[in-house]
Simulated assay, not measured.
Amino acid sequence: MTDKTTHSPHLTPLAASLPATVPFIGPEAQERANGTAFKARLGANESVFGPSPKAVQAMADTAADAWMYGDPESHDLRHALSATHGIPAENIVVGAGIDGLLDSIVRLTVTQGDHVVTSAGAYPTFNYHVTGYGGTVHTVPYTADHEDPERLIAKARQVGAKLVYISNPDNPMGTCHDAQTILLMIQNLPEGCLLVLDEAYVELAPDGTAPAFNIHDPKVIRTRTFSKAYGLAGARVGYAVGHVDLISAFNRVRNHFGMSRVSQAGALAALADAEWLTHVRRQVQTSRAALTQIAEDNGLTALPSATNFVAIDCGQDGAFARAMLTGLTARGIFVRMPFVSPQDRCIRISCGSPQDMALVAAALPEALTEASAAAPATSRNL
């Protein structure tokens, strides 16, 4: 069969050479395929606790003004973030979630033949952007279920990397490094290399996880989001903090009207509602404890988490964990799992409501029994 995409005269040679991949298959696609809705949506690390009611009201109040473009400078939100973090607004850029910001970062720094370093099994959308601009991705393994700063730096030196990517706290394992470890990593970056520090989950992490912002250091750019703790994944709002020269360069490539007026209003109100953020943190802590207990009740091990999800070690290999995931999906529980060994021995379950936790507690032992019964046949298929 002819691959019409590959041979299209409209594509660049680079685009034609890339596989048509989707980093994540959405739960909606799975629901369409299965012909039924999930009972518990716990796979995408969204916040089922929702956004601040004040953010919801702000977005509703702004909806009638949706005929206007959003402020292309995101002025009010940037200045609110400036006040929150105690840094100048000129060191902050707002974008369509961390994914949109990663696209701009890679577009600004990577071209055909450039080398980039990340961890094997870390956030795949970063790799997606790198290959989309012609870069070459080099990976290093995790160490004890943590991304390994020393290995990342060593590989960057070896290949002459333009970028090194690390998430802290980490997705998909939920582990984290302390601020001093990250500062040491920044200090040890090779000349000409930029650290992309993804802090999507940092509001949910223990104190001492994030270093203080150093806006004068040109070697690091940090990305944060309103998708996780603030519960605005569907609004697509993120921001990056870095040296003014790099932040101002975003204006060369970013989608200046990429932020909707409604999303900007929601993020601004969410940022101001510290009480709701505290409430969500408590809910996440409660749910992490519940998931840990559910794992223990079934003879499994939950990894310590600094995020709004828990990675549960299923005790065998990736094939067994996939069987577990399939069993949970069949019972209406949407979860995901790491995709690289040995992390793929785990399944990853987002934090949820007490009702969600009850559904997981009921479905997990059934999925475990089913996967265990099929384990010999599964092993023969490896």
Rank of each mutant, 00 (worst) to 15 (best):
G70W: 07
H129F: 14
H79Q: 10
G266T: 00
S305N: 06
S74R: 01
T139F: 12
S119Q: 05
R236K: 15
D207A: 13
L325H: 01
A16Y: 04
L163D: 02
G95V: 11
Q158R: 02
H177Y: 07
F339R: 02
I247Y: 13
S47C: 12
P342A: 03
I182V: 15
V22T: 13
A15S: 06
H79L: 10
V94E: 12
S341R: 00
Q158L: 14
V360L: 13
D103F: 11
Q343P: 01
Y142T: 03
T292M: 10
F24H: 11
I182H: 03
H7F: 15
A319H: 07
G26P: 07
D145F: 14
E90R: 13
L14G: 00
A361H: 05
L108P: 03
A290Q: 10
T12L: 15
A274F: 09
A33H: 09
F250L: 06
T111Y: 10
A55F: 13
A362Q: 14
R261N: 08
L152P: 05
F24V: 10
D3W: 11
E31M: 10
P190S: 11
P338G: 01
T139C: 14
A373G: 02
V159C: 00
F320S: 01
H115P: 01
E28Q: 04
D148I: 03
V106H: 08
H7E: 07
D148R: 01
A290P: 04
I166M: 12
S119G: 05
V244K: 06
T131Q: 07
V220A: 13
L268K: 08
N308C: 11
E370Y: 02
I349N: 02
R345K: 10
S52L: 07
G70K: 00
I87P: 10
G86L: 04
A120P: 00
K39F: 12
L204H: 10
N214L: 01
Y123F: 06
L368D: 01
V335Y: 03
D71C: 08
L271W: 06
P376H: 04
A240H: 05
A371V: 02
R322D: 15
A33G: 09
T131E: 12
P169S: 04
A373F: 07
E31L: 05
E191P: 07
G242R: 01
V284H: 14
T225W: 10
L300G: 07
Q187R: 06
D114S: 02
I247W: 07
A319Y: 13
E366R: 05
A362P: 05
T21V: 15
L232F: 03
N251V: 05
D356M: 13
T131Y: 08
T326I: 12
Q343S: 07
V220K: 01
C351W: 10
D313A: 04
